[in-house]
Write a protein that binds this DNA or RNA. Structure first.
Lengths: 225, 225
DNA sequence: CAATCTAAAATTGTATACAGTATTATTTTA
DNA sequence: TAAAATAATACTGTATACAATTTTAGATTG
């Protein structure tokens, strides 16, 4: 394995299984666990200083979320993301992000719009500063506000789950030449159309954004095709 | 509680947690457990003749699927479906079913098309016979083939999950006067457009079908509005 | 009689123990 | 030496035990 798991801290009042789940998920997303790697319950439990019980329950959750694959009586493996997976995920996201953008155009508050605009400005500043960590942070916050504005919690969490499933490889897409400024332009178009309460234009902007993100991701994985 | 849980049979080679999960899910769907009812681990375990461990893991899964709500240290409750939930679910389904239909129009095989047509005929026969159980069975099979034909497993399972979340109340919609023949007409239009490989028409047919299903469901819940 | 405090019971959260199965290593045999 | 059989090991699946917390019931007090 590439790095180490985060130690489990007990100060919060979340059940252990939640903390364990977040820790393992983070380790998968940031590459501490490689795709295909086997995850063994005792080893994970020891490493985090807990028993197998919360580890098992965490793994069950990660399976539902698509981060690991379980084979009965054989063990758990970190899910390996394939070209096919990316195609599937973006087929769905194109459609759901379009929906979310359209709903947001109808339901967003002025305060939220202000937040989006502020985040856009910050995004540009961090691009100029070349601060990758902050860029990711602001990008996440931007989408969070947007999905929240759709006023559909299920939609929000489905999209978040799909987003997370490609997070481990999204870094490449982000660092693709010119993609960041493209992203900002697309976000700007999206916010503007939402601010104009133009549902159709918002949907279009969302569709274009997701399609471009997919194309860049594909190119960054396989530059030939 | 309204009825009784299915006894757990050990002949298959599925882990207990899976059998337990299916049993509880079924009990929620068919009304054995009412919305808001508290589910206690020991009680469930005793009733099914297993220990708490597989019951706990089953409940974790049902939580992710949206069938139960867990409050840490307080217990698990059968999820109560609200008008708002239905609105959320159908907002998403309208969009995803449209996607699935479009993809199916591009990717379906002739064998699958034949199966759909056969199921349509059966559907009509069971409507005439008034065999509600068979109607539900054929309807489920119909959608299963359709979603399978989209060649997108994630899409398939997301839609299935959303479908299941309203299954417990869908019976009412099914028994709404005239809805069954309407359903069949809509299915027919859908199959025809898919058979014609007409993506746009298929998407339209799917959208109409879902929107009508939602309207009927809403009317059957609250006839006034 | 109502309200509050206290103690008991019940339930969830976590840890550990045991059983069954799959994998690996070793030995045996051709 | 290679293949097959067998034993040893390791891991998952399930059950049980213990700890911590919440709920309930009862007692006490105003």
């Amino acid at each position: 394995m590439a790095g180490h798991l985060q130690p489990i801290k007990l100060d919060s009042y979340k059940p252990l299984r939640e903390l364990v789940c977040e820790s393992i998920r983070q380790a998968i997303i940031d590459g501490t666990f490689s795709p295909g790697e086997r995850l063994m319950e005792i080893q994970l439990a020891d490493e985090m200083g807990v028993s197998r019980t919360p580890v098992r329950e965490a793994i069950r959750k990660l399976e539902l979320e698509g981060f690991v694959v379980m084979i009965p009586r054989r063990g758990t493996y970190v899910a390996d993301i394939s070209i096919r997976d990316i195609t599937e995920i973006y087929e769905i996201r194109t459609c759901l992000d379009e929906l979310a953008a359209g709903l947001a155009a109808e339901r967003i508050t002025d305060e939220e719009l202000e937040t989006l605009n502020r985040l856009l400005v910050e995004f540009g500043q961090y691009i100029n500063a070349g601060d990758m960590e902050k860029i990711v942070e602001v990008d996440t916050a931007f989408h969070e506000v947007l999905y929240m504005a759709s006023r559909n919690d299920r939609l929000h969490s489905i999209i978040n789950n799909l987003r997370e499933q490609v997070t481990s490889i999204r870094g490449r897409s982000m660092s693709y030449p010119g993609r960041l400024t493209e992203t900002m332009d697309e976000h700007r178009a999206l916010v503007d159309s939402i601010a104009a309460r133009d549902v159709e234009r918002a949907q279009n902007a969302a569709r274009i954004h997701i399609e471009n993100a997919e194309h860049t991701l594909m190119k960054s994985i396989n530059p030939v095709t």
